[in-house]
Design a protein around this nucleic acid. Structure first.
Lengths: 357, 357
DNA sequence: AGTAGCAATTTGATCGATCAAATAGCACGC
DNA sequence: GCGTGCTATTTGATCGATCAAATTGCTACT
């Protein structure tokens, strides 16, 4: 019969104490409040701790301290027909920073949509996690209210879109992002810059649309009609982009609210024999894995997910230690990753956009 | 001052016992060994448990039972210039099945490459996790030996490529995958089917190459020279595919060992004015998010990650409860997702592949 | 009626750490 | 010489559950 697990459990604090010739509490202090020990004792104790490879038992510590050092993160099913979520990059950054702050990330997922909140409830009641990180928060998000009512600690990736919400949050400025895309396109000589965006009822979509429009106005090239809206699917984006491209005075560049939409736009271009980056410039949003690999490379707005994660963890730490941070939320600035779909030379060469002056 | 956390901690077993007029242990039994209670007592106790919303405290339970019900999963930095890892889909499936089996997934990440194993050590010593799930195991993987030596329970996503390893594993048959792609291409009329694969020293790459070659032989269309190798990057794949396409008798279809490589191939086609799916058929591997959204849609081999996750969790459960499973490992079969890059009608129409008979 | 044999339930001990309070050690001043 | 006032360290209690053993309650049999 095969032997099983469990053999790697280390020594207990009691055994270490005995080996070092001191008491339990002194071992505990050496690790948790070293300033309480005399220098020589500390050194000796830490030596023994190191020799025996002692690490305090999590369960025991958690029980006594009434904490778990775990942070719950709910993940959604990966949507097919999406350019790939931010999850990958964000998750890695979040784990890295969390571990740096002494926390670990615990994943959970709703069994079915009904018990979306049951997962929170379960983890809180069993003291399995100390706090949550929420992503994709939206107007009227039931999670925000549910957690808020119960005074459960959490930090949201997503600003509070409605009034009266006072939770800590971190978000990325979508308007600045699409603004960067427009700036870049204008610098390349584009004057007719369209938008393929999300439906009007999406706050995030409105944010990105506003950035596009404001920047166009700023550059004196605004045409509010040069836009189409659809949900975040490539097939819909193909149709939406088609409507713009087949118009009487089509855009020479299209700013998209997501990489998924941008991929649909690329499809619409291909259908019409137009070359992305050469005949029509395209920008996406999120810098998803697909953006980097699709030929000729999709220019895209990149969210600073590493900074988002860092800020979230900082806020979590403050929340759980009752510290006050100067700001409840933080709005971070994205950057633009330029690739082939806004190729400078090609676009200028093929498309004399100054012709209408 | 804002109130903080912790207010949602539920009642203790002691309080529930008092409320129900029974002892601690009876509450415990009601939840863990209901057959020990008389039917009427059970019903009454469960009623009280439900009324008070009692859930046993994790830390206390973990301490007594010497388990954590957590499974560690190490995640790697998301590689730029990759079509998007499997992580998204796999992770979700793994979490879902784990929760179904009473486990949660705990993420960790190596701070720096050196302490790749330090993370394991830490989690084991602190009794933070009961077991691990490993992904991307490879020949000579230090993790396999390290965990094996310590008799730490784990299940690998990836078969043992070297002899002498006796750990539980689940994997996907790559050879069958590329074989499916070839079958499909042959059915479309293709006779010159090339391969863009990974370097020779990759076991996974060899597996996928073997599937391509065997299928070609089976169909009597084998040309072992019709292949190129490079690492998993689009830029290298573009060059590699270029060498094949610019040859004297170029392939009409290219099977790729990954979606990343396939995206590079699409780039090479675009450079040459060739249309994917129409002039040259292309297949990828992994059915990454990018495959679904890149125009005209990348035909790709899809790994049954949901089944992989289920099998892994089943094996974890057996491992942790000392049960014996009939098989130590399981090899699952992928499927082919057909999209525009192997468009039937277009390919047949434009490319009379029978011409050389 | 008395009691053996079970079934149902309760009591005491324990998991391994930390908190709070008590004690030991030590220098210093009067 | 002896208490004062520290600092360093130890002791006792506790977190909330489960395991193991003891006890109570019942049924059935002689």
């Amino acid at each position: 019969m095969r032997q099983r697990s469990g053999e790697q459990a280390g020594p207990t604090i009691e055994q270490v104490a005995r080996a070092a010739g001191v008491s339990r509490q002194t071992i505990s202090n050496a690790l948790n409040a070293p300033e309480r020990l005399r220098a020589d004792t500390l050194q000796r104790v830490l030596g023994v701790v190191d020799d025996l490879g002692y690490r305090p038992n999590r369960a025991a510590r958690n029980l006594r301290r009434r904490e778990s050092k775990l942070v719950g993160l709910r993940i959604n099913p990966a949507d097919q027909d999406r350019a790939g979520s931010l999850l990958d990059r964000f998750l890695h950054a979040l784990v890295e920073h969390s571990v740096g702050a002494g926390y670990h990330i615990l994943l959970f997922t709703p069994r079915d949509p009904d018990d979306e909140l049951a997962g929170f409830d379960d983890l809180l009641r069993t003291t399995a996690v100390d706090a949550f990180v929420l992503t994709d928060t939206h107007r009227g998000d039931p999670r925000l209210h549910w957690l808020g009512e119960r005074n459960a600690p959490f930090v949201a990736f997503g600003r509070p879109w409605e009034d009266g919400l006072m939770h800590p949050w971190v978000d990325v400025d979508g308007a600045v992002g699409t603004g960067l895309a427009v700036d870049h396109l204008v610098a390349l000589g584009h004057r007719r810059i369209g938008l393929v965006g999300w439906p009007e009822d999406s706050d995030v979509g409105q944010d990105r649309r506003r950035g596009w429009l404001d920047a166009c106005v700023r550059h004196g090239v605004a045409d509010p009609d040069l836009r189409a809206h659809c949900t975040d699917r490539t097939d819909e984006a193909m149709l939406a982009a088609g409507r713009l491209l087949d118009g009487s005075d089509p855009p020479t560049a299209l700013v998209c609210a997501s990489d998924t939409l941008a991929m649909g736009v690329l499809g619409a271009l291909a259908e019409r024999g137009l070359r992305a980056g050469r005949d029509v410039a395209v920008t996406g949003f999120d810098d998803s894995p697909a953006a980097a690999v699709v030929p000729p490379g999709l220019t895209s707005v990149r969210q600073p997910l590493e900074d988002v994660a860092e800020s979230i963890v900082k806020r979590l730490g403050a929340l759980l230690s009752d510290e006050q941070l100067p700001e409840r939320g933080e709005l971070l600035t994205p950057t633009l990753v330029v690739r082939g779909t806004t190729d400078h030379q090609r676009t200028l060469g093929k498309h004399p956009v100054e012709e209408d002056t």
